[in-house]
Design a binder for these strands. Sequence first.
DNA 1: AGTTGACCTGGAGTGCACTCCAGCTTCTAC
DNA 2: GTAGAAGCTGGAGTGCACTCCAGGTCAACT
Lengths: 130, 130
Amino acid sequence: MTYAIAEAAHRSGLSIDTLRYYERIELIDPPARDSGGRRAYSDDDLNWLAFLTRLRTTGMPIKLMREYARLRHQGVASAAPRKRILERHREDVLARLADLRSCLDVLDYKIDNYERMCAAETTELREATA
Amino acid sequence: MTYAIAEAAHRSGLSIDTLRYYERIELIDPPARDSGGRRAYSDDDLNWLAFLTRLRTTGMPIKLMREYARLRHQGVASAAPRKRILERHREDVLARLADLRSCLDVLDYKIDNYERMCAAETTELREATA
DNA sequence: AGTTGACCTGGAGTGCACTCCAGCTTCTAC
DNA sequence: GTAGAAGCTGGAGTGCACTCCAGGTCAACT
């Protein structure tokens, strides 16, 4: 099964331009081409894209993704360094999760304050117009 | 208590340049100045900076922070719209937390795979050299 | 009085991750 | 056989959030 670029974009959640951009910067391998010279993405291509978008979602910079992609080409021999990249990245993600959660607490606290402020105001208003 | 810009930078975790930048774009009010025309940040200034950095950590774009800062100047009257901004942002943060967690699962899965790959390789090596 | 270091201003430059564009080709449908 | 949609290329442009710089001021120490 192969997919035209529009379909690949749709399935990966990336834009057509971004797919071509990722190819240019060697984040993905040039996909096969159909008889008319158009890109024909394979399921493997899409799987790799899906993984890349996860890395992106977790905030991995493109440079590091490229490094990872480069290692992938070396096959099994590069399993160890690839693992190291993912492990380090995992730590980053965990740290960010913790940060996010603690900021969320502050946000909740603030919202709660506004809640009370608005409630107080409403009460005042009711009393004033009573 | 007031703080020179270097101290304010240190305490807020922002760079000196970023502090001046935030002032230029009206994210923070111009702090007081000492006799020599140098910025003298107050505790209030630092508290506001601390909150801004939380918003930043949670990925709020500067534009929205500016909007929030603008509303703040209108005092109590703007409590409701400010609350709305924080509530919407809270939803964003929750969504990102969920995304991050699900991506983390994929990451864990991949790392686990590499774990097995490396273990298998080691075993092979041991067998080959035995 | 002179040197050093922190700070000042306005403006230019940077890095990242796309995003858009002009001008061209190729398939599909009528 | 022609119109329109989808895709192609190389290169330029965008938005965001800083970051850096030149050239100057000010205060404190020696």
